[in-house]
């Protein structure tokens, strides 16, 4: 009873948020899941429960394997996005960590794309990635790098890799910031001890500093990875919704436009599961890690 009095008010203060989230996150997910199990394929409404049929159809009967195609697009996009941001982010953080005059300025510039919306940057990237002879193709031409000219996101096989470039541009600075904070969080004594042992700079980084960055790298991977799976704004503003660059998040929108609620719901739930597979273990892991602190 006494304990109750102690933590009761806290729970009470938290309860409005808990109720809202219970309804608007978990409740609505359940609702969407229910729609995904029905046959609400047009504006006339649902005729009944069809079990997992919509999911099976997405994988087996979707016209032109449209859903599988969108998953393939998402995979290519995600790989390029992840590898690009991690490499650039680490490299930039490393450069700044090694000490550069005007570090603050470099950092500010590297990070600024993060403040801009994908819708706004999409305007300029659509122009830069003009598949004909403008934009970046013109730059390559001007520098005698004509062989680098390409059709960007209109390439049928690797177009999604080009589509990931604006995303890499936008998020690399963010990953840099994470790594930089990681570098700064490494105790000075560790470095000094290594220096005392006569370790070379290479060995210092290889054996002491980089291992310390593993948790940061993991966080960065998770954050960028889950953003990638939800990617919608960028693709809508660079290419618009079309087959070539369709990912599940865009497919949901397209399905809703033709009032195919059940299909849209099924894709959404698959998308949610994809994200959850990554996020849930991570949340549990961090929760445990904290307890062991």
């Amino acid at each position: 009873m006494r304990r109750m009095r102690q933590w009761g008010p806290g729970l009470l203060l938290l309860s409005p948020s808990l109720i809202l989230l219970a309804v608007f996150v978990y409740g609505l997910i359940a609702w969407t899941a229910k729609v995904s199990l029905s046959d609400e394929h047009n504006a006339r409404g649902s005729k009944g429960f069809v079990g997992l049929q919509n999911y099976v159809d997405l994988f087996t009967k979707d016209i032109n394997d449209r859903f599988l195609h969108s998953l393939k697009n998402l995979l290519i996009f995600t790989v390029v996005f992840l590898v690009g941001t991690m490499l650039l982010g680490l490299l930039w953080a490393f450069l700044l960590e090694r000490g550069v005059k005007g570090e603050g300025f470099f950092r500010t510039v590297y990070l600024f794309p993060m403040a801009v919306s994908f819708v706004a940057s999409g305007v300029v990237w659509r122009w830069l990635m003009n598949p004909a002879d403008g934009g970046l193709n013109a730059v390559f031409d001007g520098f005698g790098l004509g062989f680098l000219q390409n059709t960007w996101w209109t390439n049928p096989d690797w177009g999604m890799a080009a589509m990931a470039l604006p995303a890499v541009w936008q998020l690399s600075g963010y990953v840099m910031a994470l790594f930089l904070a990681g570098f700064r969080g490494i105790p000075q004594e560790l470095r000094e001890a290594a220096a005392m042992d006569g370790a070379s700079t290479y060995r210092l980084y290889r054996n002491v500093i980089f291992p310390q960055l593993t948790p940061v790298a993991l966080s960065a991977l998770i954050i960028v990875g889950h953003m990638s799976m939800k990617m919608f704004d960028l693709i809508m503003s660079v290419s618009g919704a079309q087959w070539l660059t369709e990912v599940p998040a865009v497919y949901v929108w397209q399905a809703l436009l033709t009032s195919d609620y059940s299909k849209a719901a099924a894709i959404s739930i698959i998308l949610l599961l994809l994200v959850a597979v990554v996020i849930v273990p991570y949340l549990i892991y961090t929760n445990r890690a904290e307890k062991n602190r």
Partner: peptide, 25 residues
């Protein structure tokens, strides 16, 4: 509109892959 969407998407796929059988299907 649903049919239109499916047809547009099928043609979009054809534009890149040019797979006759897939388009017919």
């Amino acid at each position: 509109q649903g049919w239109q969407g499916a047809a547009n998407s099928a043609l979009g796929a054809y534009s890149t892959k040019q797979d006759d059988a897939a388009l017919t299907k």
